[in-house]
Amino acid sequence: MSDLRYDDDEEALRDSVRALLTAHAPWSRTLARIDGDEPYDMALWARLAGELGLAGLPVPEEHGGAGAGFREVAVVCEELGRAVAPVPFLGSAVLATRALLACGEVELLEQLATGRRVAALAVPFATAPDARPHPVAAVPGPVLRGAVAGVADALPADVLLVVADDGLYAVDARAPGVRMTPVVSLDATRTLADVVLADAPARRIAAGPAATDAVAAALTAGAALLASEQVGVAQWCLETTVAHVRTRHQFGRPIGSFQAVKHRLADVWVQLTEARAVARHAADCLATGDPDTALAAALAQAYCAEAAVDAAQACVQLHGGIGFTWEHPAHLYLKRARSGALALGTADRHRAALARLADLPPPEHRKEPFGVLTKQS
Rank of each mutant, 00 (worst) to 15 (best):
V76D: 04
M42N: 01
L80D: 06
P58T: 05
L31K: 14
E11L: 15
W27S: 15
L54M: 11
V76T: 11
L52F: 08
A66T: 00
G36E: 14
D7Q: 04
A46W: 04
W45A: 11
V76P: 00
L57E: 00
E78Q: 14
H63D: 15
A23S: 08
A32W: 00
A23D: 11
E51D: 15
E72C: 04
R82Q: 13
V73H: 03
R33E: 08
D37F: 00
G69N: 11
G91V: 07
A55C: 01
A66L: 09
L48V: 07
A66S: 13
R71D: 05
P58Y: 02
A19I: 03
G81M: 13
I34V: 15
G56H: 10
W45K: 07
S16F: 01
V87N: 13
E11Q: 13
G91W: 04
G36F: 09
R14A: 15
V73M: 07
P88L: 00
R29C: 03
D37I: 01
A46Y: 02
E51N: 05
L21G: 03
P88V: 00
P88E: 01
A12W: 08
E79H: 05
R47G: 00
G56C: 02
V59P: 07
D15G: 12
E79W: 08
S92P: 09
E38Q: 15
A49R: 01
R71M: 09
A49I: 05
A46M: 02
H63E: 13
E72T: 11
H63R: 06
V59D: 04
E62Y: 09
P39E: 03
A19T: 04
A66G: 11
H24P: 03
T30Y: 05
G64W: 09
A68L: 13
L20P: 02
V76H: 11
L80R: 08
A83L: 07
M42Y: 01
L52S: 11
P86L: 05
F89L: 10
A55P: 05
L80T: 10
G67L: 08
Y40N: 01
A68I: 00
D9R: 14
G36A: 14
E62R: 14
